[in-house]
Design a protein around this nucleic acid. Structure first.
Lengths: 139, 139
DNA sequence: CCTGAAAGTGAAAATGAGTTTCAATAAGTT
DNA sequence: AACTTATTGAAACTCATTTTCACTTTCAGG
């Protein structure tokens, strides 16, 4: 809970208002864990603050992304968000679509590297394959 | 042109019909190069086969992806496709959205590796940053 | 070469994620 | 408490993608 408070207070310090809707979204995001889609965040947040609108979830996630508190990425036609945690990647199951977090980084290109004029500021890696369950079921 | 023929004949051998629409899409895809969006493929293919419908482009790209001839990935709300070429990755510019192909692979996890029950069959890597042009303009 | 069953097609309508608009509401300053 | 202005929710909208369905084409078998 302390992290959420810090996040919200930092937002306030930067001139944004701290509202019930934003509090609910931040809390939902923290509970949702890795790579939650908008609907999941919406459902969780609405539990704590029933008159929350979906639009506000989009707006808040966008705000948090622009302020650097969450990462945004796309998978299967819908965006996913997660609180900006220590550098990690994702294991995406081709059969069931489940996303697992994986804490190692097997990418040898570091921030600031220049590749023929292109300056690298970061990277996104997804390892695709089959999760333990689907591995047995499929094929 | 020979590659396209091979692709189409292989499809036929697997029981799919080779149609004018599919020929046009495959040719467009070959011309489009790296990471073409659906609209680009559609525009190119329609030149060769004017009564082509957009729906058929979606369907054909989907077929080719399922048959393993093209890679599909998502970026900025619209899917991109490209003929499955030798393993490579993409440099995505945060400012202008341009996508460049990059032929090296800095990922040390190989196919077949098992990570706590998850079997890796492949990976997708995007290096994000600023292209030569935007690097000078932005900031 | 014909022919017919089944696959494939295009147009239009439907879906669904995400965005915009706008009048009403609430945060935080005075 | 009053006031200014950011924020909100609902509804309408946009745009990529999918579905439906009546019509067309492919190609295996004659």
């Amino acid at each position: 809970m302390s992290f959420n408070k810090f996040l919200l207070e930092t937002l306030r310090a930067r001139g944004w208002r701290v509202t019930a809707a934003r509090r609910a979204v931040v809390e939902a995001l923290a509970r949702a864990g890795c790579a939650a889609d908008v609907q999941t965040v919406y459902r969780l947040a609405k539990r704590a603050y029933p008159r929350l609108g979906l639009v506000t979830v989009y707006r808040t996630l966008d705000l948090l992304a622009r302020e650097g508190w969450v990462q945004r990425w796309e998978e299967g036609g819908a965006a996913r968000y997660e609180l900006d945690q220590p550098h990690h990647h994702h294991l995406v199951c081709l059969a069931c679509g489940a996303v697992q977090r994986w804490d190692r980084c097997p990418v040898s290109v570091r921030e600031g590297a220049t590749l023929g004029g292109f300056v690298v500021t970061g990277h996104r890696l997804e390892l695709v394959g089959y999760c333990r369950t689907c591995r047995e079921v499929v094929r």
